[in-house]
Every structure is written in structure tokens, then in C-alpha cells.
């Protein structure tokens, strides 16, 4: 498909409404996340943080509005988008009867990622030796979280969607997570993090947005960032027509509802 025009946004939501039955998960979200940016999504329980991430990952359908992920319409280019998006959810997405290494290997192969990254990713998360050969059913919550993170690191997606990533992690793992986020951004990835503890992400985040009642209701710049991000991945051609392109100025932008 020929590119219509490049989109500067890694993630773009324009008046996005998502429903679960008749219940609104998102009630008209406007949010632009630039490539290479780290954005924290904060808000009270039930505000729509997880729903926002699920919509961005294509797990929850958009009822109205416009969603673009990595320059693509995720409904139209579902497989292509999903291969470039990684999500750390509340659940770890592990199979209890498979070992740690088998779980990581399956997820990486399923995502079409480079298999040579599997072992280094496991080593990075401390999933080596006996632990790598342990059945997932025998892991603690924190260890399961580490395995899910190892999958993310091995897949090296262009867009990281992290839902309460610090939950269940000890101090050293939290520190490692921050380091992994920095490395992912340095490699050109974009990171959106939903968290109840935004203060834990102040050292890595560029911006924080507040979600309340399924809408973005506030924004706070944590760290001014340069206008261009070296190493940012080329975004895929945006679906045509792309009304977001003309209206989005260069650099890091937030359109707050």
C-alpha cells in the first residue's frame, strides 16, 4: 500500500469512543503520542487507563472516532500492527504447563521476532538456569511479571503499552524496568504507561496525561524533550485519508480533550 503521508504520531486517538456492551470504556479520548515519547497515563480506578491501552493494542474495538497506531489503522492492518506493538497487561499471558523459556520462545516466534534475542532477554530479566526451565505454574507473581517483561524485551516492539508495570515487582526489578524503558526509547520505541504510581516513572517519563471518566482531562509535561528523536523508527504509511497529519505540528504534542 503506497504511503499517503508520514504520520509523526506513534499513537493517535481522535475523539475515540469504546464501548463494552452499552457501557462506555472511553468516552471521546483525544491523545497524540509522538514517536520516541514516554507518556504516563494516570487516573483513578475505573477511569479508563487500561481501556485506553487495550484500545491502542487493538484488544477493544473502537465504536467511533479515529485511532492510528504506528501510522496504521489497527482495524485494517491488524496483524501488522500487533507484530509491532507489545503490551504488558495485568495478566502475564503465560501458559502454566510450559517452562519460562518455552513461554518466551513461543511468544517471540508467534510475534515473528528475532529468535536470537530470546536468551539475552531472559538473562537480562534474571530468568536463567533452573528458573528458565521451571514451569510457569510454579512462578511467583513477580516472576511471572519478569517473564512477561522478557517477552517484551525479546520482541522489541515499536510501541510498548505497559499497564501498571511496577505491580508485583521488587525494588531491583522496578529499577530494571526503568532501565529497560530508557533503552527501548533510545532504540526508537514509544512507551505508554498506565500507572497508579506516576511518581515512580518521573525519571523516565516525558509527559503525563490524566484520564477521568473515559476522557483525557489533563496533561503535565514532566521533562521537555528535543523536537526530534534520533533512532526513532520509520512509521508505517498512514491510511488515507489521514486528517491527523495536517493538524499535528512537529515535535511532541498532546491534544487534550
Amino acid at each position: 500500500m503506497a504511503p499517503a503521508s508520514p504520520s509523526p504520531s506513534a499513537l493517535s486517538l481522535r475523539d475515540v469512543v469504546a464501548l463494552s456492551g452499552r457501557f462506555p470504556l472511553l468516552a471521546g479520548v483525544d491523545l497524540e503520542v509522538a514517536a520516541g515519547e514516554v507518556v504516563v497515563v494516570e487516573g483513578p480506578n475505573g477511569a479508563g487507563k487500561t481501556s485506553l491501552l487495550r484500545v491502542a493494542a487493538g484488544l477493544a474495538p473502537v465504536s467511533s472516532g479515529q485511532l492510528t497506531v504506528l501510522g496504521l489503522d489497527p482495524q485494517r492492518y491488524r496483524t501488522a500492527v500487533r507484530r509491532r506493538v507489545g503490551m504488558l497487561a495485568h495478566a502475564s499471558h503465560l501458559y502454566d504447563d510450559l517452562t519460562v523459556l518455552e513461554n518466551v520462545r513461543f511468544a517471540v516466534r508467534a510475534g515473528g521476532a528475532d529468535r536470537s534475542r530470546i536468551v539475552p532477554a531472559c538473562e537480562r530479566l534474571g530468568l536463567t538456569g533452573r528458573l528458565a526451565r521451571t514451569s510457569a505454574s510454579k512462578l511467583s507473581a513477580g516472576q511471572r511479571r519478569r517473564v512477561a517483561l522478557a517477552v517484551l524485551v525479546a520482541r522489541a516492539p515499536d510501541l510498548w503499552l505497559l499497564d501498571e508495570p511496577h505491580a508485583g515487582l521488587d525494588a531491583s526489578a522496578r529499577s530494571l524496568l526503568d532501565q529497560l524503558i530508557r533503552e527501548a526509547v533510545a532504540a526508537g520505541a514509544t512507551v505508554v504507561v498506565a500507572s497508579h504510581e506516576p511518581e515512580l516513572l518521573e525519571s523516565v517519563a516525558d509527559r503525563s496525561v490524566t484520564v477521568t471518566g473515559g476522557r483525557v482531562t489533563g496533561e503535565r509535561v514532566i521533562r521537555p524533550v528535543p523536537a526530534s528523536t534520533p533512532g526513532a523508527p520509520a512509521l508505517a504509511p498512514a491510511p488515507s485519508p489521514t486528517p491527523t497529519v495536517a493538524s499535528v505540528p512537529p515535535g511532541r504534542i498532546a491534544h487534550v480533550a
Binding site: 497487561a89 495478566a91 499471558h93 503465560l94 501458559y95 502454566d96 508467534a110 510475534g111
Partner: peptide, 17 residues
């Protein structure tokens, strides 16, 4: 098998055909 620990979502997210 796919109902435990969100494995079904994991499969959907993986980008498998």
C-alpha cells in the same frame, strides 16, 4: 488452555495469522 492468565489476549496480541 487459552482462558488462563489472559493467554487468549496474548495470542491475539502476538500477531499470529
Amino acid at each position: 488452555v487459552e482462558a488462563v492468565d489472559g493467554a487468549r489476549d496474548g495470542l491475539r496480541l502476538s500477531g499470529l495469522d
